[in-house]
Write a protein that binds this DNA or RNA. Structure first.
Lengths: 268, 268
DNA sequence: TCCTAGGGTGTACGTCGTACACTCGTCAAC
DNA sequence: GTTGACGAGTGTACGACGTACACCCTAGGA
């Protein structure tokens, strides 16, 4: 959003009062490098080389590599579209999250870097605050909004925990054969693979059922299931009969280890 | 599950036909090191030192560091309790996931290592297969079961994407003051912090609403919301009127970039 | 007795992040 | 015009890291 022009202007105007935009240049080339080569391509030395500068020069603008990664995340999160105005909370949340997903798909390394962060960056804080605002404006109590954030988890930032990206969405013959061999050890996985292959052959109806494993469809399916659940809770909280929460949670916590407290991290 | 005894027996029986259990010893001490010092404590050199051996010795039993990490994950995932027999699908899934969570809380590094894996390990494959079996036995179609796995996401392995673990669950005075200062920039976060603090003062009612941010409660809340949603879909799929899916997903995909295909990874 | 193979060793390379001391330009104050 | 401070880029160096490669040593079979 105009940051490029800004950075250029800063570098150009060698006579300007000052040119503090060097950090931006570093972050932007770091993002570019990551876009090309993935997470493991991000190294201080490579960024410096790309900038035609000695590695230690970066440290005049960036505290350390962690700070650099935080800055990169801020660049990416800053690309998420702002919330749309005037929509009901559900579509506002939905569209915002889908925008976040689009952004993260443009920067496939970002999800992994995000996971490795240990504290939120300014852009993320702003993003969460605005997301909370959507919920509150939609009639959520602070408590229910808090739960909603936890329920969304990483999906709120546009990605689900997609483990094992090698399980290609369209199983090829080799995969089918392999899993068929293991069918007696892993019968259910084999069944799934069979079904995926069948759906694929029958001409890829993107309607979830029978179709091949389409991550966009799956993402939206999960998102909508969760939004529907929240909508129901919101409605029941307005009836006000009892505090809104899903069924099984009405009992007290069931299985927590008493010694967990220190081990469990807490998100926002 | 008897692996200790097995490993011991292997090391003991210096006269046995062979003692191929060296890999186990390596994995177990690696897990111990990670339990003590976190992810960044895991290095080939440190593991070797702990074993009183030169670093390169490890490579006779482990392909490389990635293989080592996979092995460590298998050790951890192997600690998850097997599914309980004879229960309905919902409680079976619920209990299994809570067991996974307990396991992951015992090994706080494991979630982060899991996230970094690029392909599933044998123990994870077995875990997923058995989880799929629960769903299918509960009456899920293969398709709905597939959606269910996606909906669960990382929760199925016992952790939610808990970003930013420094936001301590009980905000102290300093945090409250800090966020109050930023209240006009981040009004909604400030509201949440206030509410959390208030709940905390009013004597920690663990009943979600009004209580401090308790990650166990939040985890179960999200889990139950999702399980409730799946239950509803299962019921509606049995009525058979239409294919079961959440509301908004009934329209075709809305916002996917046409060029996404290669960028989006696909989980099982 | 020798051969072989498997497990442990030693050395070495390239990469990484970054501490520390330096140079060099620009500019304000005198 | 000289000086001195300061911000930005440099150079060198250190201690990690993962791991390739060649070596040894020992036990067991021929």
């Amino acid at each position: 959003m105009g940051e490029i022009a800004e950075a250029k202007a800063g570098a150009r105007g060698a006579r300007g009062a000052r040119e503090p935009l060097r950090r931006d240049r570093i972050l932007r080339t770091a993002v570019a490098i990551a876009d090309e080569g993935g997470v493991e391509a991000i190294s201080m030395r490579r960024i410096a080389r790309r900038l035609g500068v000695v590695p230690m020069a970066l440290y005049k603008h960036v505290e350390n590599k962690d700070d650099l990664l935080n800055g990169m995340i801020d660049v990416v999160v800053g690309e998420i579209d702002p919330a749309i105005e005037g929509a009901d909370w559900k579509t506002a949340v939905r569209e915002r999250i889908l925008s976040a997903r689009r952004t993260l798909l443009r920067h496939p390394w970002a999800a992994r870097v995000l996971e490795s962060r240990t504290e939120p960056t300014p852009a993320i804080i702003a993003y969460f605050d605005s997301m909370m605002g959507i919920f509150l404006a939609g009639g959520f109590s602070v408590d229910l909004m808090h739960h909603a954030l936890h329920v969304m988890g990483s999906r709120i930032l546009g990605f689900s925990q997609e483990l094992f990206d090698d399980a290609s969405s369209a199983p090829d013959e080799e995969a089918i054969a392999m899993w068929s061999e293991m069918a007696e050890r892993y019968p259910n996985i084999a069944a799934l693979i069979r079904e995926l292959a069948a759906g694929q052959i029958s001409h890829e109806q993107a309607t979830a059922v029978g179709g091949a494993c389409d991550t966009q469809v799956e993402f939206e399916f999960a998102l909508d299931l969760i939004l529907d659940g929240l909508e129901r809770l919101l409605a029941s909280s307005r009836d006000g009969s009892d505090v809104a929460r899903p069924s099984a949670s009405k009992e007290a916590r069931t299985t927590a280890d008493p010694d967990d407290a220190s081990a469990s991290p807490a998100p926002i």
